[in-house]
């Protein structure tokens, strides 16, 4: 290596890590300011997920199987979906607030900084109590895993499944937020990521073919919990798992590419 030249990757990684730490520290300080609200948030989160689980139990009071899926399998889907969602919610949730940045003219400020706007938007707000969601998801997931007696060998590939789920949610939120570059105002489409979480916790096979196609190839929420669960239950071939990882990485790449196209289209609101 020639003198004076430094390897680029470690510097970029280190800089990225420093930026992440700085933003996270600011977010944490904000949390300390609003400590009472944080407690309300944690209580709300617990209630929200108890309610979600109770709803499944109430429905299964009336039915034995939902399209061939038992209560334990449904809880497994619920837990897996919640883990992917909470990972997204922890690191990427701020992408859905892009319309507010645009409407208030704050996006101009982000463009002037020497960091990619997408990174800045992501890091500008963490959902600090999502760790509680993650914990809830892990508990439900672990209980249903034991109940369903799934092979422990599959534990080795769980990080890949969790990563894919998170990437799919992240890509969906980035993709849907990009619409704001064209509409300026907040269209409900940006919140769709939070809404589709409700549908990803049910087997995709209950929907008609058109919706199944949309949920597999356009907004691939089938890859969040349905396909991985079907593989773990032996309903689908294990070859679907690497496909999910490749698919989620590809989907994330496409979302970032479209975001960058959206940034080029962006015209300030002049606010």
């Amino acid at each position: 290596m020639a003198e004076g030249k430094r390897p680029m990757r470690p510097i970029k990684l280190r800089r990225g890590w420093d930026i992440f730490k700085a933003y996270f520290s600011v977010s944490f300080k904000e949390l300390e300011i609003y400590d009472k609200d944080f407690i309300f948030g944690v209580v709300a989160m617990i209630i929200e997920y108890i309610v979600g689980i109770l709803s499944i139990f109430f429905i299964f009071d009336y039915i034995d199987l939902l399209n061939g899926w038992s209560l334990s399998e449904m809880l497994f889907l619920y837990g897996l979906n919640l883990i992917g969602y909470s990972l997204w919610s922890s690191f990427f949730i701020n992408t859905i607030t892009l319309p507010y940045y645009i409407q208030r003219g704050e996006f101009d400020r982000l463009l002037l900084r020497p960091i990619a706007p997408i990174i800045q938007v992501m890091l500008d707000g963490f959902n600090d109590d999502s760790w509680g969601e993650l914990l809830t998801g892990l508990i439900v997931f672990a209980i249903s895993w034991i109940t369903l007696d799934i092979s422990p060998l599959y534990l080795l590939i769980l990080p890949i499944i969790f990563l894919s789920s998170c990437l799919i949610y992240a890509a969906t939120s980035i993709l849907l937020s990009t619409v704001s570059f064209f509409t300026v105002a907040k269209a409900d489409v940006a919140n769709l990521t939070m809404e589709i979480k409700e549908f990803a916790q049910y087997p995709i096979s209950i929907y008609p073919k058109v919706l199944q196609f949309i949920f597999t190839f356009i907004l691939p929420i089938a890859c969040v919990s349905f396909i991985p669960s079907a593989v773990l239950f032996g309903k689908l071939s294990p070859w679907y798992l690497p496909l999910i990882l490749i698919g989620s990485l590809l989907f994330f790449g496409i979302a970032v590419y479209i975001w960058n196209k959206g940034v080029k289209h962006y015209g300030s609101t002049g606010t």
């Binding site: 105002a185 549908f199 929907y207 919706l211």
Partner: peptide
Amino acid sequence: YRAATILSALTNTFLMIIYIYLWKAICASS
């Protein structure tokens, strides 16, 4: 913001359709 209005209406339609099919499946299982 007209574009946002149209997109909101389309999003809401999409969500309603999914809810309807979800409940159709639940009702069919009971």
